[in-house]
Simulated scan of single mutants.
Amino acid sequence: EETIQLAQQFVEARTWVPASVMGHNAGGLLVRSEEEGLYGFLPLSQMSPGLRLWLANLEKEEELRRAKPDAAAAKGEGEEQEGDAKRAVRLAALAAIVGEQIFVRLLSVDATSGRMVMTCVEEEAHPEDEENLRQAKRRVVSSLTEGDVMEASVTNVAPFGAFCQVAGLDAMVHISEITYRRLSHPGEVLSVGDRVKAVVTNVDPAALRVALSIKRLQKDPLLETLDELVAASESGVVAAVEGNIPLVDDVCRMLVRGGEVEAAVPGQRVRSSSVSKEFQLFLSTESANGFKLVARHLDTMQEVNVTTSMPREELKVAVAGIIAKLAKDTSVVQP
């Protein structure tokens, strides 16, 4: 009885709460708010437009999967009737949302059975719904910081990136933050329903949105030496490129001019699968006489051999100072 009274208070207050999807059936989702101790059913008819779009995208992915020859063969002799097939697709799509976090509002509670019905829909007749929902999301946003590593679910794929849900919030992974290799479309490596590990790169409290990066949790091939690429270029497997990357000569001159670097000599320039529209410069590994820098521009990479007795941290400071000077005339990335 106490639980029912508490639930009725939530109904009257139109309070939005974060909830975890615990299960599903053909009619909707079973959700639980651990924070408030509420457990109820979210019917398909009470799903928000964003959640319905996510579900529709998951159904398309499931239909495509079932249309593949290997999936069709796995069905065996008994072919599904059209109605059964649609039901199976819907159930598979709903199952893919289990474990996710969404925001819900308690719509009704049965005083006899205690059965609770949830909703994700903001009603125009109640403008306070929008503000109440924003407040609930703000509480979650305020708990996120840049650098947090989280699991995100892909809800849609567009030419410029992937839309995701993370902790019940809208998130975006720009195409440039998916992988280090060149992509024509995010769909080459991501599909709706994929769950990926990503790092938070930006939190926008005003828009209640989060920017994510998948590739920053991967090992950047650029941070390794170019020994393998140079060897491959010498054997003809990878194409060598004549001349130096723009700004590499400037970097070498400025390093030597500082007085603590005895020599800075550009190495071989080779083609790479990594691509950058901007000039990028990284401090890579130690060498016998100092360190190696790696420059990247467009689809080429080049090593710079630096002869110096400077400690690594001091060289990083020196390189950062050079980058700061070059940044006035060109776009660069700090090491």
Rank of each mutant, 00 (worst) to 15 (best):
G168T: 01
A240C: 13
L208P: 00
L208D: 03
H185S: 05
K137P: 00
A231P: 00
N156S: 15
V173G: 05
L190K: 06
S235W: 01
K137W: 00
G236E: 04
E228N: 12
L144M: 14
V173D: 04
T145G: 04
T155L: 11
F160Y: 14
T155A: 12
Y180A: 12
A167T: 13
T155M: 13
V238A: 13
D194K: 13
S235D: 11
K197R: 14
G243T: 06
P159N: 09
L222C: 12
S213G: 11
V230C: 02
R138F: 05
L212K: 05
L208S: 05
I178K: 08
S142E: 15
G161I: 02
H185G: 10
E188S: 04
R182F: 10
P205R: 15
D227P: 00
V173A: 11
A231E: 12
A167N: 15
V140P: 00
G147C: 06
V210P: 14
E228Y: 09
T179W: 05
R134E: 12
A211L: 01
A232L: 10
V199I: 14
V200D: 00
K219E: 10
S143T: 07
L169V: 09
S142R: 05
V210T: 12
D170S: 14
I214F: 08
S142T: 03
V192N: 12
A207G: 10
Q135L: 15
L169T: 09
K219N: 00
E242R: 12
R134A: 15
V157F: 10
T179C: 14
G243I: 04
Q165S: 05
T179R: 11
V192D: 07
V200G: 06
R195M: 09
V166K: 06
F163S: 08
Y180K: 12
I178S: 04
S233W: 09
T225Y: 02
G243Q: 03
V241T: 11
V237G: 01
E224Q: 12
A206K: 15
E228M: 07
V199N: 06
A198V: 13
K219G: 04
L222P: 00
L212C: 10
A206Y: 01
L223P: 04
H174R: 06
L212G: 02
I175F: 11
Q218W: 08
V241M: 05
P159T: 07
V241P: 09
S213E: 09
G147F: 04
E242I: 02
A240D: 13
V166R: 02
K137D: 00
K197P: 06
Q218N: 09
E188Y: 01
E242H: 07
L217A: 04
S143D: 07
L133Q: 07
A167E: 13
C164N: 03
D220Y: 10
K197C: 02
K197H: 08
N244L: 03
L217S: 08
S191P: 02
T201G: 04
N202F: 00
A231C: 08
E151P: 01
T201Q: 03
S233M: 12
V241A: 03
D170W: 00
G147M: 07
V173H: 01
L208I: 07
G243L: 02
P159I: 10
Q135G: 14
G243K: 06
V192Q: 11
R134Y: 09
Q135T: 10
Q165C: 08
V189G: 03
A231L: 08
T225M: 08
D194V: 05
R138S: 13
V237S: 03
E224Y: 13
V154P: 01
H174Q: 02
V189W: 07
